[in-house]
């Protein structure tokens, strides 16, 4: 049981991750873009953050930079289905900037659940 923040602009994916991780017994909050996500985190810290990359207002790359600064132990998962570049390009950047795990969309429910469990254990 952990506190998890999901930052994702696509409502369907946000809802999916919300119900999936809630069912796993976690306490889940959501945000629709990087700006909202960072604000939510500042108000109340989380154990783990899952963030999409391409989003309006503030993208996932910026959000990861903001969140990682001064928080070396925060668990970060970046997810992406690509945009102007291949998803791998974004995910590689995210990894360099401090994401612990990356997942390319579409991923299976099992994959994200496993990644979350692994990070929380470690």
């Amino acid at each position: 049981m952990a506190r998890i923040l999901i930052i994702e602009d696509d409502e369907e994916v946000r809802d999916l991750l919300d119900s999936l991780l809630t069912r796993e017994g976690h306490e889940v909050a959501t945000a629709a873009n990087g700006k909202q996500g960072v604000t939510a985190f500042m108000a109340q810290p989380f154990d783990l953050v899952i963030t999409d990359i391409i989003m309006p207002e503030k993208d996932g790359i910026e959000a990861i930079m903001d969140l990682r600064r001064g928080r070396p132990h925060l668990k970060l998962i970046a997810i992406s289905g690509g945009g102007r570049a291949e998803p791998e390009n974004y995910l590689h950047s995210a990894q360099l900037l401090g994401a612990n795990r990356t997942l390319r969309k579409p991923f299976s429910n099992e994959a994200i659940v496993a990644a979350v469990q692994e990070l929380l254990r470690g």
């Binding site: 696509d10 369907e12 994916v13 809802d15 999916l16 991750l17 119900s19 999936l20 391409i54 289905g81 690509g82 945009g83 102007r84 570049a85 998803p87 969309k105 579409p106 991923f107 299976s108 429910n109």
Partner: peptide
């Protein structure tokens, strides 16, 4: 076209994500 294809890929992967995820559920 590249920009558009990127946009389409982005949206489509989200759609597939929802279909895959919710059908698994």
């Amino acid at each position: 076209l590249g920009v558009m294809a990127g946009g389409i890929a982005h949206d489509f992967n989200n759609i597939l994500q929802a279909i895959l995820g919710f059908s698994t559920l």
